[in-house]
Design a protein around this nucleic acid. Structure first.
Lengths: 150, 150
DNA sequence: GTGATTAGGTATGGTACATATCAGTTCAGA
DNA sequence: TCTGAACTGATATGTACCATACCTAATCAC
């Protein structure tokens, strides 16, 4: 009998037949590097996403934001609390619907969002340096098909 | 001023420029479907991975397994406890090193691992039905390059 | 033989994410 | 117009996952 501990190298070959296994590993690498990159401006990935979408969609409501980013509403609250506390975003009552808040970025928020996009672009250029633009487009197109199929 | 809440559709267009955003969404979809699939045989993704690697590398030690799957040793303990409790895997002392355990699958473990691989393959065929084999190979090759570059 | 290292395990904490529920507000239909 | 359903944001809570620090027993290096 083959004894892995002594005769063979232990490996994950059996799992490498699956696309999902490779995708999870690649996604983990991207995520770890982006998290490290955004630490420089004291943002987490999720707070960065929220800030950037608010800057790109000023005046949107929390529920719209939650839908756009597929975040549960309760989890959005503390994220916005933090962004508001840091004067990057403001919650202002919507006159026509007193239940809702309109989310708008402050000037500091717009500035930090621009910096965050810049850092994220640099991060991707770094991590994806071995993959040219055409290949990146292929990659995105294939993943988009997975998302669309679901 | 454009008001997103009333005039425009709120979207995540600003984030779609990034490969990582698409990858994370695609990976989440794969993960959710696989988790649902494996529930049928009462395995989580991580326990399935551990079981399958043990079947493919009988006799390996816990630290080798942890290295192969990039799992921290403490987190492996409860996973193996569960697999042992369910009589899918056995921990047996290594005679030449009484600190170590050799991990071997039971017959039931081998059988369940085969079933798990079958279910996982079905899951991928389902989720990736819009992507042919050549494209899947491209996808894997590109993600492999990301992993190798890190 | 003594100190450093290793294997497995324990305890603990942080992060992310989901559900159930609530108060206040708005809306639709009787 | 009134009443019940639905919606908005918030709160409380639970779970899954992953990482660090530390412990013991055993082994290894010198």
């Amino acid at each position: 009998m083959v004894d892995a501990a002594t005769e063979d190298a232990v490996d994950d070959a059996i799992l490498r037949q699956f696309v999902g296994y490779h995708m999870r590993r690649a996604a983990n690498i991207l995520q770890a590097d982006l998290a490290r990159t955004l630490k420089e401006i004291d943002l987490r990935m999720i707070t960065m996403s929220v800030l950037v979408v608010i800057v790109d969609n000023p005046g949107l409501r929390q529920s719209q934001l939650a839908d756009a980013l597929a975040i549960e509403r309760p989890n959005l609250v503390s994220i916005l609390d933090e962004l508001e506390e840091r004067d990057l975003v403001s919650r202002t009552r919507v006159p026509t619907d007193r239940r809702a808040y309109a989310l708008t970025p402050t000037q500091a928020g717009e500035k930090l969002a621009a910096k965050a996009l810049e850092l994220t672009a640099e991060h991707e250029d770094r991590i994806l340096s071995q993959i040219n633009l055409e290949e990146r487009a292929q990659l995105v197109a294939l993943m988009q098909r997975i998302v669309d199929g679901a």
